[in-house]
Structures are given as structure tokens and as C-alpha cells.
Design a protein around this nucleic acid. Structure first.
Lengths: 217, 217
DNA sequence: TAGATTGTTAATCGATTAACAATC
DNA sequence: TAGATTGTTAATCGATTAACAATC
């Protein structure tokens, strides 16, 4: 996944946060906000916020700040939230089921079209109104339904191979919950959620904190 | 969560990846590995790998490289995986249940002691052998069982308040799946898994890719 | 108009990469 | 010993912060 854009990933990963905080402000009927106030709320510096927003356009007004609703909508457009996406989930285990039932997901425009698994015990189960289909049917399903995003909730083994199949069917984005780094020579978008890496970060930081405490004595 | 350590978070977040890849090598009975080979496998530069590892000690040997098993164990120790952690899950919804049943979780030493919810319909349910308890009991439970890590799988609303309660009971780490940034004036470790931010990154990148394609025409 | 706050350039900071002497 | 590869310092790159002129 090479990127030719001049927007750095550091900026991209702050955008959803801006969007969320602006949504909160809007919810509280706040009409305008300055970069200084956004800084106070988000913890980023005002300077960084202005720099980030100016990657996409001059949404503010000197002496006034930003119109909350306008900026919220602009960020929604920038984030591609002004449309819906057709998605499928591969793997009907605990994680797959949790994502399927995650209300925020469909609310944000990610529409679940189908669920797949290779375990005969799971095939036929109904999850969020979708019958779990055998993985063999995924290629035709993607083509027939114009699926754009696949969510991988599979075990480590086999995930790479499934991902290759998906890419060959023309999948545009993969949200990967499997604990592997996919190697795909294609410009498919891959976003990893590596839960164990996140967890190990906690244990590292806990240990570090204890070690520092000991040292100070 | 202030850090006094001189190890940057950029380094910390690469450690679990090194650990995982070394586990894979070990699993394939590979005894030694050079930073160059690790670079090929992980995608990080050899220089960066050596720099990262040398934050914690000289684990390699000139002219030889690194002993896979030794480095794997060292990284396990650095990550604090040589012990167990007592955990509870707050929120017995889809995400809470998925984490409870996530096998990788207990395998890595994070032992689930209890589940809590404030919804009377969920209280009393049994999840992974644990009866879901009313949230009111969480304070005594933490103290009585020496719970160190809390996993927040709660809806946006109320999460901040619960987190404050947990901190007052002496919780050391919070794994936060709720779509809020916790504001806690304490040195508790907070690790966020913001699924919607991850998802919005995909939609952003998909949109960006389409825009770039259009431009090229 | 005066005050406020943006947009944008320049300065700083931190992280990554390159280079190479040390050494197994 | 010669070759390989680390550990570590120096150079580069990129991201963040500071500063301020533009302007509402």
C-alpha cells in the first residue's frame, strides 16, 4: 500500500479525532470554535490543528475561528463519510460477531452484506440477520454485490491466503483483525487492528512504570 | 499518563511486532537471525531494528547476529509477559464478550477475574464462566481481588466516570474500547482501541486513492 | 477601527537512516 | 585470520511548534 499523497499518516490519524470532537461540540449546540479552544479539548497544539486543517483548505476565518457545523461536515467529506460502503466479514467467531453487531459501524455508513466462515459448525448461523456462508462462495459474492471492504476476523493461519483471494476479486480495503501483517502487492488499503500488540503495550508500560518507581528509591 | 522513560513510544510500539516475528522464527526452528534478515521479514530497516534493541541491551553478537530464542525471551521480559495480570471487563456487550472469549488474551497472561455491567438484563449472564456482576460491586471486587487492569467496553456515555472510579480503586492500566479519550490526572496507563477512528482511516484512504486516480486522468 | 485568530513560513525537535569502528 | 554483523555515533529526514503578517 504505497501512498502518493503529500498528506502524512500522522495527519490522517488525527482527522477522525477532530471529527469526533467537533461532533461533540455540535451536539452541545456550540457554533464556533477557535484552534486554541480545540487545542484545549483535544490535547493537540493549536498550531498543529491549524496546520492539519490547512492541508485540506482554509476552513477558518481570521478573528473568528471555525464554524463548528461547517468544519464537521468538511471533515466528514474528507474522511469519506458522505457515502456508504459495502462490506463483508470473514470469520464468524467472537470478533466477527462483535463487529457485526457494533452499531457504530452501520451508523457510519459501513453496510454489512454478508458473513463468511470455513467452519461447518458456524455456516448457517444467523448473525445480525445474515446467514453465515461458506468461504468458497466469497468470490462470487464480492463480484455479485460490489463489495468494497472486507473485514478479516480470522485466525492467524490462512489469513494471508484469504486476503490474496479477496484482492483478486477486486476488494479495495481490508480491515484486518488477524494477528498477521498482510503482504499484498496491490494498492489495496490495509488497516490493521492488532489487539495483542495493543495489549502488550500495556504490559510493557506497566512494567516500565514499576521499574522507574524502583529506581527512584 | 506522563512518561519519564527515555524510550519513545515509537520504539515501544515496534516491540510487540519484533516479539511476534521472533516467535514465528522460533516456531520454524530457526536459531539465529541478523538484523538484515529481520529487516526483510518485518519491513523495518536493519538500522532501526538494531537501534531499537540497543535501547534495552546488546542482545546480539558481532559477526553472528541474534540468537532467536534468547532475543524472543528477552523481548518477552521487556514486554512484561513473564508474569500474569489480573483483569476485569466492564461492559458485557458484544465487544466485552468478544474480548472475554479471545483466547490469545488469557494465553498471554491476562487472566479474566470478572465482568461487570449496569444493565439489569445482562447482570447474571454467564460469559466465559463469569457471572456478569452489577457495576456497583466493582470497587470492592477490585480491592478484594487485586485487579490491575480494567478493560472498558462501555458506551461513550458514562465511561469517563467509571474510569475515575477505577482509578480511585487503584487500577494500574486501562484498555479502553469506548470511543472517548479519558481524562485522568493519575499515572494510570491508558491504551485506547478506537475502532471507529481505525475505520474512518480506511474510508479516508479509499477516498484519497480514488481522488488521486481521477487527477491522473 | 481594534482585537482576535487564521494561514503560512521559519525554527526546533525528535525519529529514522547511514556509516563505520569495534569485535566476534 | 577474514568475513560478517553488531553497537553506536553522526547525518538526514520529517513532523511539530513557534512566530507573525494577513485579514476578518
Amino acid at each position: 500500500m504505497e501512498r502518493l499523497s503529500n498528506i502524512s499518516m500522522a495527519v490522517v490519524r488525527r482527522l477522525p479525532k477532530y471529527h469526533r470532537y467537533l461532533g461533540d461540540l455540535l451536539h452541545h449546540d456550540i457554533r464556533r470554535v477557535s484552534s486554541q479552544e480545540l487545542s484545549r479539548i483535544t490535547g493537540f497544539t493549536a498550531s498543529q490543528i491549524r496546520q492539519d486543517l490547512n492541508c485540506f483548505g482554509g476552513f477558518g476565518q481570521q478573528g473568528y475561528g471555525y464554524n463548528v457545523e461547517e468544519l464537521y461536515n468538511e471533515l466528514g467529506n474528507i474522511l469519506g463519510l458522505n457515502r456508504t460502503y459495502r462490506t463483508i466479514i470473514i470469520g464468524a467467531g467472537n470478533v466477527g460477531r462483535a463487529i457485526a453487531n457494533y452499531t457504530y459501524f452501520e451508523e457510519s455508513g459501513f453496510i454489512l452484506y454478508g458473513m463468511f466462515d470455513n467452519n461447518p459448525k458456524k455456516i448457517g448461523d444467523v448473525v445480525k440477520g445474515h446467514k453465515v456462508l461458506p468461504i468458497e462462495e466469497v468470490e462470487n459474492f464480492i463480484k455479485d454485490n460490489g463489495i468494497e471492504i472486507a473485514i478479516l476476523c480470522t485466525p492467524k493461519e490462512g489469513t494471508q491466503k484469504i486476503a490474496e483471494t479477496l484482492v483478486n476479486c477486486g476488494i479495495m480495503g481490508i480491515w484486518n483483525f488477524a494477528p498477521v501483517d498482510l503482504k499484498l502487492n496491490s494498492d489495496v488499503i490495509i488497516e490493521n487492528v492488532h489487539l495483542s500488540e495493543s495489549l502488550f503495550t500495556i504490559s510493557y508500560l506497566l512494567k516500565e512504570r514499576e521499574d522507574l518507581k524502583k529506581k527512584r528509591k
